[in-house]
Nucleic acid binder design. Sequence first.
DNA 1: TCAAAATGAGACACTGACGTCTCGTTTCAC
DNA 2: GTGAAACGAGACGTCAGTGTCTCATTTTGA
Lengths: 155, 155
Amino acid sequence: MADIARVAQLTRATVYRHFPNRDALEAAIRSEALARASGALAEGRLDEGTALEVLRRVIQALSAQGMSLRFMLLQGPDSDPEFLAQRAQVLSPLVDVVRRGQREGLLHEDLAPEWIVTAMASLLVAAVRAAPSPDADVAEMVHRTLMSGVATAAS
Amino acid sequence: MADIARVAQLTRATVYRHFPNRDALEAAIRSEALARASGALAEGRLDEGTALEVLRRVIQALSAQGMSLRFMLLQGPDSDPEFLAQRAQVLSPLVDVVRRGQREGLLHEDLAPEWIVTAMASLLVAAVRAAPSPDADVAEMVHRTLMSGVATAAS
DNA sequence: TCAAAATGAGACACTGACGTCTCGTTTCAC
DNA sequence: GTGAAACGAGACGTCAGTGTCTCATTTTGA
């Protein structure tokens, strides 16, 4: 709490005037992260264009959020079940887009849609963490790596 | 420390008989993780076969370590500089393998070798975390996703 | 068997983080 | 200008985690 207050350029007491306790603040952070992710997905216009175009836009919108989504993007199954459920609810439309892409023959069908979304999120966080500078087009690199992989041809 | 002692089926006092303080225990954990990662890379026989074959073996060996390497695999640039340096030293031979693969035309040259290694580590941790059951061949899925991507054709 | 080492159990002081409170000051809106 | 709201600056009690210590018990190894 002291570190948060320092970063926010506030006194610790003032932080407690905004959030009654630490749990409430963490809940607000989680809620904010869910809202930002939801907004990024909306910005991706999940219904427009092919699944590949949607994924490119979604990656772009999510990477624009920087590190503020890393908590919600790479959550393991050992976290708060309620938050995990909300997270799954936010991400489920994206999973549906992946399913659509698989039906359209644009994405491999022998990979689980949930895994594809998880891989996207994982690469996204890794790329943003490796390059905190917002000017680099992290989104393009992630999209390229996720879609085509790193090899020049299938082995 | 109480949780660690409970998991280890020891008393908290006994844990302090093995490690003088919390910092020493964490240092031992980091050292153990570095040793396991180094062993996994040795198991990958970095000099045998093409870079693609090496990466397949390395992914196999690293995934066999389960979640014990997640700390060292997805470290950000905000960690202990000394540990980061040791980590880079352990992983640098793998980066060299990627460079070799790029020179041989097996890996795309417009992706940074460090990014390819980071992407591999990130996908590995995500996959193992999503499927803690050791029987599933997580390694194959990670290798496939990393090498060929999730799309059926380049966009 | 027996001595040494390792462990269990519990008490203890110390430290840092948490949350609350008060008072004085600053900022804002009308 | 003035009242209200927000903030700064502390002090304060509480509590959980850390590390130490002692003594009884168990386990190990020769």
